[in-house]
Design a binder for these strands. Structure first.
Lengths: 147, 147
DNA sequence: ACACTGATTATAAACATTACAAAGTAATAA
DNA sequence: TTATTACTTTGTAATGTTTATAATCAGTGT
């Protein structure tokens, strides 16, 4: 599964004329295998065994490159640091208010909202983002225990 | 219009037992009169004539207080700093990719999405956020001129 | 082998935000 | 009124994320 996605992503890199360095490969691979929408620092820490000399700047540089060629999406929520997601299929996120967990969920794209926004505002719409917030199953249980 | 909203907001502050200091009053008043979803620094700069000795920390403190009692919403987009919005009626935002302008627009709340997300993920949903991105009228004109 | 381009590293800098302690101000109780 | 208390502001330091810079390194092509 992820093997296939990794190869596709590497092919995209080649097409874009971007070098596939060991560090870049590792960042991409980690993102594809990760289900947790990690921060730059998460990635840095996760790879420091494999690349003890890797610089944080390298992580940021590679995330920028991957974002620019459309392999990775940058998610900015209220908290201090960005999160990165390389699942580029159309999907939305639901985020736990309590533990911060981010879960993917699918819903038909909100085309009507985009269309109406164009009409009302005169903007030429490119895309939209939506997140839902709530309490996840685990945190619901914890809360009910404490009452 | 804004006069009325300001008085309502001040009443809410009193009910919550929060002191109405000159600085707090000024931050709130600026937010209510502002249509531009300013950053903390925008507010700080805008008020430095009136309060030459005001500290940035005061702006942040007051924004936090106003947020906690539900008078102000904090908006976090991709850029580095948060923006603050005291229009608490249900509305969404459309943001210009080019100049960063933020425009309000109204659309019926996406209740079905929330309901489906609850079913699929088991989360207990509290709220959601959605923004639309595109190019505003002015920036469209500029772009077409350059071609 | 050599030059060229891009990538990485290490470090410094920028920036927004928060933490903290001291001084100030308003509200309350004696 | 005075004392006490709680809250606010101020100024500054600290934190944390991200970006910029310069030097080094690696791979490619001539």
């Amino acid at each position: 599964m992820t093997e296939k996605r990794l190869n596709q992503a590497l092919a995209t890199l080649k097409e874009s004329g971007v070098r596939i360095t060991p560090q870049r490969h590792a960042v991409l691979e980690y993102l594809i295998n990760s289900m947790t929408h990690p921060t730059a620092d998460d990635i840095y820490k996760a790879l420091e065994n494999k690349f003890p000399n890797m610089s944080v700047a390298t992580v940021y540089n590679n995330l920028r490159v991957l974002r620019e060629i459309g392999l990775v999406r940058e998610l900015t929520y209220g908290d201090s640091s960005s999160r990165f997601d390389c699942n580029m299929t159309d999907h939305y996120h639901i985020i736990c208010n309590s533990c911060g967990k981010i879960v993917d969920f699918h819903y038909p794209t909100l085309d009507e909202v985009e269309a109406l926004a164009e009409q009302v505002t005169g903007f030429e719409v490119s895309h939209h983002r939506m997140e839902i917030y709530g309490t996840c199953n685990e945190c619901q249980k914890v809360e009910s225990k404490n009452h």
